[in-house]
């Protein structure tokens, strides 16, 4: 925060909730990508963006002013909250595993339909149905 005042921006340029707002905007970018894009890989990338935004939100909540990383030391009094760190740590690894699963499904979908565009898949489905 000092950084902003040093370079001449007024202190109110960085209100206390800014981190949450950035996380939410990132989340919405990911959400929009998932909804608007036809390409399945692009959708998975959008999900990834969304996911990372949630991580940022959680870690922002864990931050304590003047605290350090939660590794006990002799003359340190304030630590940031370890609980969200633990949750996000495992979430990242689980996230990559599920992303890999999604990508594997995409590869199989391309095998079956020859395309990874949602509309074309739907068209192929209807063709097969009639």
């Amino acid at each position: 925060m000092e950084f902003w005042t040093e370079i001449g921006l007024p202190a109110f340029a960085l209100p206390g909730l800014l981190n949450y707002w950035v996380a939410i905007i990132l989340m919405m970018i990911g959400f929009y990508t998932v909804m608007a894009h036809e390409n399945l890989i692009k959708k998975v990338i959008g999900l990834n963006i969304f996911q990372a935004a949630v991580f940022v939100l959680y870690i922002s909540m864990a931050k304590v002013d003047g605290g350090t990383a939660p590794i006990l030391g002799d003359d340190i009094e304030v630590y940031s909250n370890p609980l969200p760190h633990v949750l996000i740590l495992t979430a990242i690894v689980v996230g990559i595993a599920t992303t890999a699963l999604g990508l594997a499904l995409i590869v199989r979908i391309r095998d079956a339909y020859g395309t990874i565009e949602e509309e074309e898949i739907r068209a192929a489905e209807q063709e097969a149905g009639t």
């Binding site: 890989i41 990338i45 990834n48 990372a52 991580f55 940022v56 870690i59 922002s60 864990a62 931050k63 304590v64 605290g67 350090t68 990383a69 939660p70 590794i71 940031s80 969200p84 760190h85 996000i88 740590l89 990242i92 690894v93 996230g95 990559i96 992303t99 890999a100 990508l103 995409i106 590869v107």
Partner: peptide, 28 residues
């Protein structure tokens, strides 16, 4: 995450996100 004192998480995110996940995307 490093700025926000979450070193463990930053560690994982750097290894997973910048390493493995990109390789998987490129593989796909």
């Amino acid at each position: 995450f490093v700025v926000m004192d979450a070193v463990d998480v930053a560690f994982t995110e750097a290894a997973v996100g910048a390493g493995i996940s990109m390789v998987l995307f490129l593989g796909t």
